[in-house]
């Protein structure tokens, strides 16, 4: 079963994304903490796409699909028309360096990588697709 939301590319819509993800994944066999961290990871990738690849441009849209697999895995698919950026190629700076440089950014990708099991990034026509997979040891009912 697939669940889908489409939002304008603006950070003021991140709350809608979080509420949507939270509502969907509460149907899955995940602990409260796992649910909280998945909401965080998807918030981070969407914020990253909206700010850095779509420049808060509300004329653009971001689409998020959530799908549960028979083996319990959850797949999040984020599709937008923003600039291509493969976060797998990004080496996150150590936190100590960010602190020394007084940087406010740079932690989001680290969070995503620590929470999500795998991230695939690819182009499909003029769309950039991010496919985030969270494995689960417990099968869902879907």
């Amino acid at each position: 079963m697939t669940h889908k939301i489409t939002i304008p590319c603006h950070t003021s819509k991140l709350k809608d994304v979080r509420d949507f993800v939270s509502d969907v994944i509460r149907l899955f066999y995940l602990s409260e903490k796992e649910q909280f961290l998945l909401v965080l990871a998807i918030d981070e990738i969407c914020a990253n796409r909206i700010l850095h690849s779509n420049h808060n441009d509300t004329t653009r849209q971001l689409e998020l699909e959530i799908e549960s697999q028979e083996d319990g895995a959850v797949i999040f698919c984020i599709k937008d028309e923003g600039d291509f950026f493969d976060l797998n190629q990004n080496e996150s700076a150590p936190v100590e360096h960010l602190v020394k440089d007084r940087r406010k950014g740079g932690l989001g990708i680290s969070l995503i990588k620590k929470i999500i099991d795998s991230v695939e990034v690819f182009k499909e026509g003029h769309y950039t697709i991010h496919r985030l997979i969270k494995k689960s040891s417990v099968p869902t009912q879907f």
């Binding site: 979080r18 909401v39 981070e44 602190v99 932690l107 989001g108």
Partner: peptide, 12 residues
């Protein structure tokens, strides 16, 4: 709730 944006403020 806090995302990396909030963490980043404290860290900065």
């Amino acid at each position: 709730y806090i995302s990396s944006a909030g963490l980043g403020v404290f860290m900065s």
